[in-house]
Amino acid sequence: MTQYLLDVNLQQVPDPYLHGSWRVVDRVLSQTDPTTPLAQATHLHLQDGHWHLETPAAPAKGQWTVERDSLLSRPYLQLHLASEIVTALVTRLRRTADGAYRTLVLYFQSGLELFLVHP
């Protein structure tokens, strides 16, 4: 049976829709350094203000928040790393009607784009 994915209105997306363990299924590096933890990520776990990143080299973790721009209310993830804050625009969020399967696309200021799926 084919599962249909519904686009979630990003202007009204509740923050908990972003929670969970996300698997990186594709990435576009653009001009991003391919050795950074985000560029090498295999999984991104987002839970109640804390995130954890799995990479082939070494895991990373920190805190995160959702910020929204004042004009269009678009959601941005603010990932707090040890030495910097990395911002990613949520460009697409899709889910099945029951929410069991979700896809997420994040576009970072560095040009990195991550395509994620849950579960």
Rank of each mutant, 00 (worst) to 15 (best):
R68P: 07
L72Y: 15
P59A: 04
Q47S: 10
Q78D: 09
Q47F: 10
W51D: 02
T42A: 13
S21A: 06
S110D: 03
S73P: 02
D69E: 15
S73A: 12
T36Q: 06
P14V: 06
Q11C: 04
Q63Y: 13
V86S: 05
L29C: 01
Y4G: 08
I85W: 07
L29K: 05
A39V: 01
L29I: 12
Q3T: 13
P75F: 02
D48G: 13
S73M: 05
G62K: 03
V8N: 03
A41N: 04
G99W: 11
L44C: 10
E67S: 13
R94F: 01
L44W: 11
L5E: 09
R102I: 02
V66M: 13
R95V: 02
L106T: 04
T87G: 06
L106G: 02
D26F: 01
Q109L: 10
L10R: 08
A39L: 01
L79R: 04
R23D: 13
Q47P: 03
W64V: 03
A82R: 14
L116E: 09
D15C: 03
P59Q: 10
Q78F: 04
T2E: 14
A88V: 02
L53S: 08
A60Y: 01
D48T: 12
Y4V: 07
Y17M: 14
V24E: 12
S110L: 00
D26L: 01
L53Y: 08
L44T: 09
D7N: 11
P75G: 07
V28H: 12
V24L: 01
H19R: 04
V24Y: 02
V105W: 14
V105F: 12
T32F: 00
V28F: 12
L116I: 06
E113H: 15
V90F: 08
E54Q: 09
L112P: 06
W64D: 08
D98W: 04
T65N: 07
E113Y: 15
Q78Y: 06
Q40M: 01
A88G: 03
H52C: 07
V86F: 00
F108Y: 13
D33F: 00
T42G: 11
L46K: 07
L116P: 05
T42W: 01
Q109R: 14
P56G: 06
H43T: 14
R74A: 14
T32I: 00
S73F: 05
H52A: 11
F108C: 07
P14I: 03
Q11M: 04
V66R: 12
S30K: 13
A57F: 07
P59T: 02
L18K: 02
T87C: 09
H52L: 13
L72D: 15
T32C: 00
P56R: 11
E54N: 05
L29S: 04
L10I: 08
V8Y: 03
Q31A: 02
V66E: 07
T103D: 15
A82N: 14
D69N: 15
L71R: 13
D7T: 08
W22F: 02
V28I: 12
H80M: 10
S73W: 06
L72P: 08
L46F: 04
R27S: 11
K61T: 10
H52T: 11
Y4W: 08
A97K: 06
T32A: 02
D33C: 00
P34A: 03
R68D: 06
S70W: 04
V90M: 10
D69G: 14
Y76A: 11
G20Q: 12
H45I: 09
G111F: 00
S70T: 05
H50Q: 13
R23G: 02
D98F: 01
W64S: 09
Q31M: 02
Y107I: 00
R95E: 15
Q109W: 07
